[in-house]
């Protein structure tokens, strides 16, 4: 219960941010942080709570993003319906891939590589289909009306994202107090032991895939509507996959607030790095890559785990 109050408190505070922050720059900074938290939390459902590390989350992101864009541009489907479709397709693709990989018992690194390979397949295919705009990408026509899920004011985009992210976080909160969540974490910690006491690991993992794919797909829809442009590299390239996994790893895997913490920390570090070393291409990725290496080496439980760790444990973690 305490967790829920803290969560709602944070989101209440986030909801009113646009009233207090007048500069576009800062509002955008908070928006991007929230967006990273959404991506990270979606990954966290599967990776943090379920122990299945995906290297190809851009697949679900891209499917969501292309769903809203293609249906809108090619068939004139309203983007609000596209939002539902994006979430649905993200989820369906995730379940499909989960079905294939988990059915054949792929775990650990193999799972990571298969998800990555699927993302690559989608990237290559979308590169050569006319209806996805192929290599040139796809442009959503500018039409700043709320019915078209396009807004004149940044704060309206912000609230849309806020709402999606809130639903995602509430879902994860409920994992901590539901049978499904208990089973998911049991599978993560020991699949055999879980099976012995009646946990159907296959189904549990598929459900986690479905949720993870759903919210990642929604993040993709948001991206498409916010930037109104997609190409195969943006949608299915490795950048989104890396961001998705980096955020919870930095903040704390398998924790409710980890992705929020990780997103904020990464954003701050990214900005500071930019101030210090300038806006050269690739440098912020150097920083993020370094953070990933150091986190896994020295703080496998993320900065969220710092509070619970004694100095001794930190050293143990570093060994």
């Amino acid at each position: 219960m305490k967790q829920l109050f803290i969560l709602l408190g944070i989101f209440a505070a986030l909801a009113v941010v646009p009233f207090f922050v007048s500069s576009e720059f800062w509002l955008n900074a908070v928006l991007l942080t929230l967006y990273a938290a959404l991506l990270g939390q979606s990954w966290n459902i599967l990776g943090g709570y379920g122990g299945q590390f995906s290297f190809g989350h851009s697949l679900f992101f891209g499917v969501g993003a292309y769903s809203v864009a293609v249906f809108q541009v090619q068939l004139g489907v309203n983007p609000w319906i596209g939002l539902l479709l994006g979430g649905l397709f993200g989820s369906v693709i995730a379940v499909g891939i989960g079905f294939l990989t988990f059915r054949y018992g792929l775990r650990g690194s193999y799972f990571a590589l298969v998800t990555l390979a699927f993302a690559e397949v989608f990237r290559i295919v979308s590169n050569s289909l006319w209806w996805t705009g192929a290599g040139e990408g796809i442009l959503i026509e500018l039409d700043q009306r709320a019915v078209m899920m396009q807004f004149k004011s940044l704060s309206h985009y912000y609230w849309l994202l806020w709402a999606i992210t809130l639903v995602c976080f509430l879902t994860v909160w409920s994992l901590g107090r539901s049978r499904f969540g208990a089973r998911l974490m049991a599978v993560r910690d020991n699949e055999d032991a879980a099976g012995a006491i009646g946990v159907d690991a296959f189904t549990v993992k598929l459900k986690a895939m479905a949720l993870s794919g759903l919210f990642t797909g929604l993040a993709g829809v948001f991206y498409a509507q916010k930037f109104l442009y997609l190409d195969p590299g943006i949608a299915f390239g490795p950048a989104v996959s890396v961001e998705s996994l980096l955020v919870p790893i930095v903040g704390g895997l398998g924790t409710l607030f980890g992705p929020l913490l990780g997103a904020a920390a990464l954003h701050i570090v990214g900005e500071v790095a930019r101030e210090m070393i300038g806006d050269a291409p690739g440098l912020n990725m150097v920083v993020f890559g370094t953070i990933l290496v150091l986190m896994v080496m020295f703080l496998p439980r993320g900065i969220g785990g710092l509070g619970k760790m004694s100095v001794r444990n930190i050293f143990k973690g570093g060994k």
Binding site: A112, I249, G282, M285, V293
Partner: peptide, 23 residues
């Protein structure tokens, strides 16, 4: 104790190396 961690670390390394080269 988890082989995925190696995958993550080497992923981090590849990001660092590639982007340093890019720079």
């Amino acid at each position: 104790g988890r082989d995925e961690n190696i995958l993550l670390v080497t992923l981090g390394l590849s990001i660092v190396i590639e982007n340093l080269a890019l720079f």
